[in-house]
Design a binder for these strands. Sequence first.
DNA 1: CGCGGGTTTGATGATGCTCAAGCCCGGTGG
DNA 2: CCACCGGGCTTGAGCATCATCAAACCCGCG
Lengths: 193, 193
Amino acid sequence: MYEQLFSSIRDRVRLADNEAEEIKRFFVPKKIRKRQFLLNAGEVCRYIAFVEKGMLRSFSVDLQGHEQVVSFACEGWWISDLSSFLSGDEAVYNIEALEDSELLLLTTESMEEMLNHIHGMERYFRLLMQNHIVSLQRRLVASLNYSAEDKYRKLLEINPDIISRAPLQHIASYLGVTPETLSRIRKQVSRKP
Amino acid sequence: MYEQLFSSIRDRVRLADNEAEEIKRFFVPKKIRKRQFLLNAGEVCRYIAFVEKGMLRSFSVDLQGHEQVVSFACEGWWISDLSSFLSGDEAVYNIEALEDSELLLLTTESMEEMLNHIHGMERYFRLLMQNHIVSLQRRLVASLNYSAEDKYRKLLEINPDIISRAPLQHIASYLGVTPETLSRIRKQVSRKP
DNA sequence: CGCGGGTTTGATGATGCTCAAGCCCGGTGG
DNA sequence: CCACCGGGCTTGAGCATCATCAAACCCGCG
């Protein structure tokens, strides 16, 4: 149940032998079924969730009722409304399971306690934040300068998991195109990879 | 020389009376003239810069030689290649002064020392990071879902400084449109605000 | 005064959206 | 087990937005 988590941590920092065991107690395991919501916009996001198994998406809904997919999370990824989690404000994003999933939840309080107890985790989360900023910036540059097809190819290259597992309409929203356009791009790409 | 900095800090955390003085010593003031570069892609970014006066931009250059403006920074803003600063890797962004500017530079070492000495600054930088992520995410959603004109109007509303002070071509790049398109949008908007 | 970079304007074309219809497939109820 | 939904994906036609290319314009500066 904790394999993915420890492999994510050990990719970034060294853990003492006993620390792995200690870390477990700060997390609350949770199973969630396809289509269930982990977070509704308007609530306060009380935890960040690590995905051990399955897949989720976060998305906002604009004034016209259109969904905008902001991120996906498969095994080994974190997902949350970070702003709401850190500040205690109301969440602007919804989080929904796209598959039956197994999560490890970390509340603000657990996190703080863990950071005090296990020094290496400070570094782990700082690296996560940093990577998050870098990838947001890359996505931003891509979204501003690349064609729809290029963005699709890039996603296919960097994150084939998402493309093979998420429904087309959600991928389209994530890329900022309509489902029709993505359908045509996909045909195009399958002909000439 | 430190007015903007202290007002930025005091907006977010309380400082003890003597702390303001202490903080100063961690920064290195630097003046930089219009068109000078604070950072070249390929170097390591050794500091984050706080803008007391003036204006800068950060931008990347793609394989075809096209510039992509990633951010602007006016008075009261920080600018850096965060990834390079935090990890020590080579910078992918250039930073250039668009006006004669007065900066306060903070190196990695100074920053670490300051965080140890002055507890409130931990919080200050965490809030900065958090705001940075939130604003990147907002910009991303906007860039994926809004028309060029809507993005321009939004920028005009949120950050009129940039629009009045930066050259059109750089604003265009920042918004992900061509200078021609932005010129037409600007005419359009000036007619019907 | 003339040069040159940046901006504006115009004409044309590509990319991607909208609307509409058809298709495919998994789930449900008879 | 089959018929029938119904949601999601595909396909098509027409249209809006924005890019490209080219030329003119403007203005600060040598």
